[in-house]
Simulated scan of single mutants.
Amino acid sequence: MKNWDTFTKKILINKPIEEVYRCWSTKSKIETWFLEKANFTSNNGQREPDELVQKGDKFYWKWNNWDITEKGEILEANGKDSIAFTFGSGGNVHIRLKPMSSNTEITLVQNEIPTDENSKMNIYVGCITGWTFWLTNLKAYLEYGITLHSKGLKQEDTTDLVNS
C-alpha cells in the first residue's frame, strides 16, 4: 500500500558539504537557486544575508513567478549537515547532507503530508515533482554556475513551464 504522507529524494552534488549547506541556510544563497525572496528572523531581528539560520528562526518566503508566500519556522539547523523547516500545508522538510568522495549527497525527506485525496495530488505529487526540479537546479547552480528556472514572469505566463 502506498504511503502518501512522506517521500524521499536524493541527489549528489560535486561540491563540499559546507558550500551545499550554505545554499539551504542563508538568505543570499537560497534566493539564488530556489526562492525569489527569503527573510529569516531570530528573536533579535532579521538575519543578515550571509548569516546562517538557526533553530527557531521564523521565515517568510516568496516563490519565483507566483503570488504565493510561505511563512514558517526552522525546526533544525546544526550549522553543518542538517536543516529542517515547516512547509505550510505540505508538512515538514528535512535536509541531510553526507560527504561521498568528492560529492555531497543530499537527502530530502518531506513528511507529515496530509493524506486526503486533494493532498495526494496537490501536495504529494506536486512537491515530489517540484523538489526533483529544485534539487536539479541546485546542482546546476553549484556545479556549473547557472540556474535553470525562469525568473521575473507573471504567474499566468508560467502555465505548463517545467522550470518555473
Rank of each mutant, 00 (worst) to 15 (best):
T69I: 11
K71W: 09
G72I: 03
E73D: 11
E73R: 14
L75T: 01
L75I: 10
E76N: 10
E76M: 04
E76C: 09
N78W: 08
N78Q: 09
K80H: 14
K80P: 00
D81M: 09
D81V: 03
D81S: 13
S82V: 08
S82Q: 14
S82G: 09
S82N: 14
I83P: 00
I83Y: 06
I83T: 09
A84Y: 05
A84R: 02
F85A: 08
T86V: 05
G88L: 02
S89V: 13
S89L: 15
G90Q: 06
G90Y: 01
G91D: 00
G91C: 02
G91L: 00
N92P: 08
V93F: 01
H94K: 09
I95F: 08
I95K: 00
R96W: 07
R96A: 13
L97A: 01
K98G: 04
K98T: 13
K98D: 08
P99D: 10
P99N: 11
P99F: 03
P99L: 07
M100S: 13
S101D: 14
S102G: 10
N103I: 03
T104V: 02
T104H: 04
E105C: 09
I106M: 06
I106T: 01
I106W: 00
I106K: 00
L108N: 00
L108C: 07
Q110V: 07
Q110M: 08
Q110G: 05
N111G: 07
N111T: 11
N111P: 01
E112H: 11
E112A: 11
E112C: 08
I113E: 01
I113N: 00
I113G: 00
P114I: 03
P114T: 01
T115C: 09
D116S: 07
E117D: 15
E117V: 10
E117R: 11
E117G: 05
N118F: 15
N118L: 14
N118V: 12
M121L: 14
M121D: 13
M121A: 13
N122Y: 11
I123T: 04
I123E: 02
I123C: 02
Y124S: 00
V125M: 13
V125I: 15
V125K: 09
G126M: 07
G126L: 08
G126K: 05
G126Y: 06
C127R: 02
I128F: 10
T129Q: 13
T129S: 15
G130F: 01
G130V: 02
W131Q: 09
T132F: 02
F133W: 05
F133P: 06
F133Q: 02
L135C: 06
T136S: 15
T136R: 09
T136I: 04
N137E: 07
N137W: 02
N137L: 07
L138C: 05
K139F: 01
K139R: 11
A140M: 05
Y144H: 14
Y144E: 14
G145M: 02
I146D: 11
I146L: 11
T147M: 07
H149G: 06
H149E: 12
H149W: 08
S150Y: 07
S150W: 00
S150Q: 15
S150R: 08
S150V: 04
K151M: 12
G152Q: 06
G152K: 03
G152L: 04
Q155C: 09
Q155K: 12
Q155A: 12
Q155I: 07
E156K: 13
E156M: 08
D157F: 01
D157C: 01
D157P: 00
T158Y: 04
T159G: 10
T159S: 12
D160Q: 11
D160Y: 12
L161K: 14
V162I: 13
